[in-house]
């Protein structure tokens, strides 16, 4: 118990898809909870639901600024957590909640939603809708190594998390940084970096990207701004020192979950 990291899960305006993705680690999730993580609070999966002091907070969903409780919760999450992880497209970039104009039942006046990074400082982004169980697992294991590991493990975790920590610094707005297909245009294609691998088309959850003559074509009206395409793009970020060691790192993660 002493060696575990404390983790919380704040659930704002999100669809619970990220929660489901986390739970879809099945046995891996139980091992995580057994060995590495003391889950202090989490709606849906734990009894305790109120925000407490923790090492790492995962936040699912964007913040409805018309909802006093949501605004309080995101601020409290920041105050009580060492590391805040924006989990999924809504927390990172607003995702589909960006398109809300209000008027929905049963809270028609809740119409304005912001990515959490517009209200608090965020340390790590995990874009995607939903991020995969394996991605959440990898970040959870790395967060543990960062806080409790040996010097070597800390270095590895730092290198692994570095690009995910660079994403919040780039911001939350469309085109300006990492929020939607526009980012593939502005940061990869327009920069002469695209080599037509097809990663973006594969990971788009709404099939807004097709590969035409080997290059991505984005239907921007379909794009929900989850950030998966740009995050997945090997020419978005590619940390050769980490990815080059894929074999050893994958083995270490699998061994940790045995």
């Amino acid at each position: 118990m002493v060696d575990k990291i404390t983790v919380g899960y704040t659930h704002l305006s999100g669809c619970t898809g990220c929660t489901v993705a986390l739970a879809d680690n099945y046995g891996g999730l139980l091992t995580l909870l057994d060995k590495y993580v003391d889950l202090k609070y989490m709606p849906t999966l734990a009894d305790a639901r109120h925000i407490q002091k923790v090492d790492v907070s995962f936040v699912e969903g964007s913040v409805c600024i018309n909802d006093k409780l949501a605004v309080e919760e995101i601020k409290e999450t920041r105050e009580k957590s060492t590391v805040v992880v924006a989990l999924g497209g809504c927390a990172c970039y607003g995702n589909i909640t960006r398109f809300s104009r209000g008027g929905q039942q049963n809270q028609p006046a809740q119409e304005a939603f912001l990515p959490i990074g517009d209200l608090i400082k965020v340390d790590v982004y995990i874009p995607g809708c939903a991020p995969t169980p394996q991605m959440i697992r990898n970040v959870a294991v790395m967060a543990y190594l960062l806080l409790k590991g040996t010097k070597e493990q800390k270095d590895l975790a730092t290198a692994f998390l570095k690009p995910l920590m660079a994403l919040p610094v780039q911001g939350t707005a469309c085109g300006a940084s990492t929020a939607c297909f526009c980012d593939l245009m502005t940061n990869v294609i327009d920069q002469g970096l695209c080599m037509g691998c097809g990663s973006c088309a594969a990971v788009c959850p709404v099939r807004a990207i097709s590969m035409e003559y080997g290059k991505p074509n984005g239907e921007r009206d379909l794009c929900i701004k989850c950030g998966a395409c740009y995050a997945q793009c090997p020419r978005g970020f590619f940390n050769t020192d980490v990815i080059g060691e894929y074999e050893a790192i994958n083995e270490a993660i699998m061994a940790a979950l045995q």
């Binding site: 991020p131 990971v203 959850p205 894929y246």
Partner: peptide
């Protein structure tokens, strides 16, 4: 099967599987 850059994409997909589930 793929080019070197596509192999890079495969390995990025295994370490950072934002959207490559299972």
């Amino acid at each position: 099967v793929g080019t070197p850059c596509q192999m890079q994409a495969v390995r990025k997909a295994s370490l950072y599987p934002f959207g490559f589930r299972d």
